[in-house]
Amino acid sequence: MQIDWIYGLIGGLIIGVAGAVFLLGNGRIMGASGIIGGLVDGSGRNTAAERISFLAGLIIAPLVIVQFWDRTTTNVTSNIAVLIAAGLLVGIGTRIANGCTSGHGVCGISRLSLRGMVATVFYILAGGLSVVLFRHILGVI
């Protein structure tokens, strides 16, 4: 528990390097919802290969690492209704807001984007409210 923040910091630095590679290499903003969403709704058809390559790395690299390092604990709920509701909210919300934790949060705030900062404030407040509501008041998570 005490050293978790060190893993957090190291992991964060790696995430930042990933974003730097994508920006300085390809001239693109590393936003997970945008990269996925562009494939889903067809708006990113012209850059489909780049998006698929990114997602292949994102899915496969952690899967390779967990073969040597048992870090597979996700503590994800098995409540199907919660998973579907949460997935729909995340999918619709990130596309309407045009970004999520990586695009608005990491990439946006680091360039001092007002939109990124405002989005981040609102999704963190809503996230906190969501945990209070569904965990402490309703007790469903």
Binding site: L55, I59, V76, A86, G93, R95, S102, L125, I141
Partner: peptide, 27 residues
Amino acid sequence: LIVGSVMFGMGWGLAGLCPGPAMASLG
């Protein structure tokens, strides 16, 4: 930007997953 971020945040809190980590743990 506001409505979308609030929806996203509600879902993020509900499951503890956002798009990046959801894909990273898909395997």
